[in-house]
Design a protein around this nucleic acid. Sequence first.
DNA 1: TTCCTTCCCTACTCTCAGTAGGCTACCGGC
DNA 2: GCCGGTAGCCTACTGAGAGTAGGGAAGGAA
Lengths: 239, 239
Amino acid sequence: MTEPGPAPRRKRMPRAEREQQILAAAEEVFAERGFQATSMDEVSARVGVSKPMLYEYFVSKEGLLLACVARIRADLHTATLEAIAGAGPDGPRAVLEAGLEAYFDFADRHGRAWAVLLNESVIVAGPAEEAIEAIRGQQTLLIQSALSRWLPSASPERVAVFAHALIGAGERVARWRLREGAGIKPRESAALLADAFWPGFAVAAGLAPDIPAGPGPGPGVPAGLAPDAPAGQDSAKRA
Amino acid sequence: MTEPGPAPRRKRMPRAEREQQILAAAEEVFAERGFQATSMDEVSARVGVSKPMLYEYFVSKEGLLLACVARIRADLHTATLEAIAGAGPDGPRAVLEAGLEAYFDFADRHGRAWAVLLNESVIVAGPAEEAIEAIRGQQTLLIQSALSRWLPSASPERVAVFAHALIGAGERVARWRLREGAGIKPRESAALLADAFWPGFAVAAGLAPDIPAGPGPGPGVPAGLAPDAPAGQDSAKRA
DNA sequence: TTCCTTCCCTACTCTCAGTAGGCTACCGGC
DNA sequence: GCCGGTAGCCTACTGAGAGTAGGGAAGGAA
């Protein structure tokens, strides 16, 4: 009735181009529905191609997700790298802040796709988990190498903890911004987070004197949190 | 010898008890396989009960996951609360460190279940995402209330960023410990992470002088950030 | 034209979340 | 004891969607 013609055959297209098309559609659907609720049929329909194509090009649903993640991570990498390179001459604190700002900015621009692809939908278990962790691990390595430039004498553990802390903090704060802190601009957020990390970094780098373990009970005793358990003394020590 | 009897009929059992059994089995399977790869059939088989039971008690697969998450979160909450209450009299730094140590310790004791239930398997999108975020929010609230005791004059945004940063850092570092940093004890990890956060906190609380934005290019030129690394596919410091 | 590579499709299979509908063990009350 | 009645339980299905088998045609090279 609508289609007198026999075959609605698709237009042929070079592989690379079709791959990009598929990735774009997949990113959309993943962002809308999340990994779990995304069906390969819907992705293929949106591209205007049949399901076996997706499998031909990306092996599995997880493979498709992985490709999306890799792509968006690469973009993020570029954006951040540019930002910190630009801030390089202004010293470590500026680099820290610029990197964070670029990150938040990226998250803002990509909205839900960022959240799904980089943080949440993580499929878990199986090879995909490894792969995603690996992609993340590369950033960690880079941060570590950047850090160790200023912390030449710090132990590897200290550097690693710092790097992972920075990553985790960034992710969570970005997520919070997406959900509730909408009003706060990337720049302000970056400044706030940098305020939290910079002093610790400066101390570790020997740019500032160590800060003693503070006074006893501060302004208000943490009473609200039920000071009743047997005091587990001393938790301060260094590695 | 094994079972001459005819009917493999299950033993009857009060609802609450069966629920606990199911939760225990589910936690096991989720930890082994991840959410995605866990089948309700396997969980039910492991409990020794039929599938419709799971649905009767937990509504859906996500519901089952949610119940597991809620349970383990509650335990974590209790453990942390006790730890920081015990350290209360020793001042903020001790509280920070004690809380972190309790967290890492908890993660160690629960192994993969912790990772899957609290961080990874998150299904995303839909009500489950909300529910999981809500449970997490509880932890954030705990930290925020503890923080604001010492930062009475800080803006809410600053406190929120601090709290989320702390949570994100904790999660990420714990995950790293689980995967590679096996040798590092909870106590040392807590000390290292506290070293990263404490100075920033002390500055914000007015317990230490502000730390200026440091010198220009430090020990190593921050130019490019990675003069050597061919930056194939990693990301810079982003966060 | 003919061949052959690359791109693409229809039409399945199989696993698994979720459901319909019924049975039975146990706890009262008589 | 006997007789409901309810709470706990099960077998046997449906439907959706991931992944596959096996073939067809466009377009370039010879």
